[in-house]
Computed example of a mutant assay.
Amino acid sequence: QLEAQLEALQCHFTWDLDPGRKKLLSIIDRLQDIGTEEGNFWLGQVYNLQGYIHFLLGSADEAKSFFSRAAEAFRRMREPDEGPWLLVNYGNQAWLHHRQGEEAESRACLSKVEALMEEYPSPSEDELHPEVYAEKAWTLRNFGRKKQRLAADIFQRAMRMQPDVVEWQTSYVLGLTSLFKHSDTGLEGDDWEKMSQAKEQDPENLFLAAKYLQQLAKKGESVKDEARELATRVLRNPVGSYSGIKPLLMVYRFYVSTDEGVKLAARLWKNTQTTVI
């Protein structure tokens, strides 16, 4: 019966996420660069995924530590501190305890899931909580092109149910740019409209801003001035996977000037060394 209850959970352990050690290590490296500063909207999801990957890589203690950090991050970010955004985390913890033979602890986590489901019932029997959809979609985005298509569909479900969460919309359109990154003309039609809206609603997201310039440039627009302006903003921020520097350097390489791109990269390198020292 316990096994059946665990299988029914929505969490990393039931989402078919085991692409092999090499891919897992690559994801871990990328997640470590995302930035764990206060205010990172996806911090809880980052820790949840890190915990699950550490479990797959054989470190249950690391997994437990990251799952605890995830729960704490969600509580700090949300009001009230208990809600459906913890369903995935409690599910992960239930599975981890079960895999370690700690059945009493596993059942305790299952009880927490049941209590949350009772207090915050999903909108309908055949739908999950939008928070669960969003975390699942964000997680799937990290596992390659095939999963990214599914992630886009799941994000759309979350946004239909809760259309006012800017970060979900941003993550959704960033997923679209990954799906169509080999397109010569960039996003088109409704997808392009959604990206434009996301940029307006999330103006401080420099990664999104850089991706937006990439898309504009693919459409034949001149983006040199905008790229230089964005570079000054990026230089003021810590370098990481989502600082915007990687897509911005691509914009420089193909649409501004290779020489300027090299100089920008050098300035960023100098900034990181100064920060480390």
Rank of each mutant, 00 (worst) to 15 (best):
D29F: 11
R160A: 12
S26Y: 11
D225E: 15
G144H: 06
H129Q: 14
S222E: 14
K147S: 06
L57M: 14
A8N: 09
D190A: 14
K112L: 15
R157I: 06
T185E: 13
L150E: 14
R75S: 13
D126M: 07
N142F: 15
E105G: 05
K22E: 14
G244V: 05
N205R: 02
V256N: 00
A152V: 14
D164R: 06
T232V: 12
Q201D: 13
S178A: 14
K136L: 15
G39Y: 07
R149H: 11
V223P: 00
L116A: 09
I277T: 08
D259N: 09
P123A: 05
R236E: 14
E62T: 11
R233H: 12
R30N: 10
Q162L: 10
T232G: 00
T170W: 01
G261R: 05
L176F: 05
M250V: 08
L208K: 00
G261T: 01
G189S: 08
K23T: 14
G20E: 09
A158R: 02
I245G: 01
R253Y: 07
M117S: 11
L216T: 00
E72C: 07
L43T: 05
R228M: 13
K218I: 02
S26H: 10
Q100F: 06
S222D: 15
E221M: 13
S257P: 00
V251D: 04
V113K: 00
F155C: 06
D184L: 15
L216H: 13
P163N: 05
M161Y: 04
I34L: 11
F67I: 08
E38H: 11
L31H: 07
R99A: 08
S65M: 12
S26V: 10
T275Q: 13
D16S: 11
D33N: 10
N48G: 09
K219G: 14
T258R: 14
D153N: 10
M195T: 03
K211H: 13
Q100E: 15
F41Y: 15
E7G: 04
A94L: 09
E114Y: 08
K22W: 03
A71R: 13
R75L: 03
G244A: 07
E200H: 07
T177G: 03
A217T: 08
H129Y: 09
K246N: 08
V166N: 07
G189M: 07
F143M: 10
L264S: 02
E188N: 04
T275N: 10
K270M: 10
F143W: 04
N92E: 04
A63D: 03
H98T: 01
E103F: 05
N40E: 14
V256L: 07
L9N: 01
S171P: 00
Y133L: 03
L49W: 04
E105H: 03
A71F: 02
S178W: 01
S124N: 11
V88C: 02
N92W: 01
L230T: 02
R76I: 05
G186M: 00
P247M: 04
M161C: 02
A73W: 02
S196D: 11
V132Y: 03
P238H: 10
Q148A: 15
A134C: 06
E204T: 06
A210M: 08
T139D: 07
K246G: 00
I154W: 04
E118Q: 11
Y252D: 00
E167W: 09
I28E: 06
H12M: 08
S124V: 02
A231H: 06
